[in-house]
């Protein structure tokens, strides 16, 4: 069953057609990679899923429910989380606080006036936040201010924040960009483990082909705003269209 169903999505910025008749179908429980050269419209496509952009035409359905017209926080509350290309974290707060906020948002919903509770005495939130930080290997950095983290750590922090919400669909925009080889491999392991243990569906934009082919069960190739191929990984590698549009230049 497909959890995310995207049909005929178009988006233009002025004269630039960033997305043209994009169709995409993400199967529940799978990792679906979206690849394509820079400027192909990959990030723009994700923006259309999370309420950041509204497509000019087309439909985006999540679990059979249209996401268009919903506010960003409503979309998130239905179970869609996103890791951004440039880390979006709470830079002035500590790593620990960064992770606690999505835990609160998950438990308390989009608004809760709990002004007289103490953060200190919220045991379940603390447990969950501690766990999340151990999962991404950041337990030792929990008291650091987020702005002082390295780029790779910021990204892992953002991933922990998204995972803390137990999303049904996790959107990842170049999760390993700016990471060292070892961290990239850790991230591959982490994502594989998330899929196996938590059965979270993922849509991953990725440039690193090592990451793509280690993880993806399905790949969509985007070029100049259109999906040129959507197929299984083994069929993508030798596909002539892909060679031409994407791998061709690199090889």
């Amino acid at each position: 069953m497909s959890i995310l169903e995207v049909q005929n999505v178009n988006k233009s910025f002025g004269g630039l057609k960033a997305l043209q008749n994009v169709n995409l179908s993400v199967e529940e429980g799978t990792i679906h990679a979206i690849i394509g050269p820079n400027g192909a419209g990959k990030s723009t496509l994700l923006n259309c899923f999370i309420g950041k952009l509204i497509p000019d035409t087309g439909t985006v359905n999540f679990n059979g429910q249209s996401l268009l017209g919903m506010k960003a926080h409503e979309i998130n509350q239905t179970g869609v989380s996103r890791v951004f290309q440039t880390p979006e974290i709470f830079s002035d707060l500590t790593v620990y606080e960064n992770v606690m906020i999505p835990c609160f948002a998950k438990r308390d919903g989009s608004f809760c006036l709990n002004a007289l509770n103490r953060v200190k005495s919220e045991a379940e939130i603390h447990d969950k936040a501690e766990h999340m930080m151990e999962d991404v290997n950041m337990a030792d950095k929990k008291d650091m201010v987020a702005s002082s983290l390295s780029r790779g750590d910021k990204r892992r922090l953002e991933m922990a924040m998204c995972l803390a919400q137990d999303p049904q669909l996790l959107l990842l925009d170049e999760p390993t960009a700016g990471m060292a080889r070892a961290d990239t491999n850790n991230t591959i392991d982490l994502l594989a483990e998330i899929q196996n243990k938590r059965h979270i569906t993922m849509a991953v934009i990725e440039h690193d082909m090592h990451v793509v082919f280690s993880l993806a069960q399905k790949i969509s190739v985007l070029a100049q705003g259109t999906v040129i191929v959507e197929d299984l990984p083994e069929n993508i590698k030798g596909h002539p269209k892909v060679q031409e549009a994407y791998l061709g230049g690199a090889h």
Binding site: H73, R82, S91, S110, L116, R118, I125
Partner: peptide
């Protein structure tokens, strides 16, 4: 008490990154 509460934490989060808070499922307006 407000400073130390989850509510206060959300307010601080609004100050540093309101967008992230929206994409985290929090309605910042209320």
């Amino acid at each position: 008490r407000i400073f130390r509460s989850p509510f206060g934490l959300m307010l601080k989060a609004i100050k540093t990154n309101q967008n992230r808070l929206n994409y985290t499922g929090v309605n910042t307006r209320p």
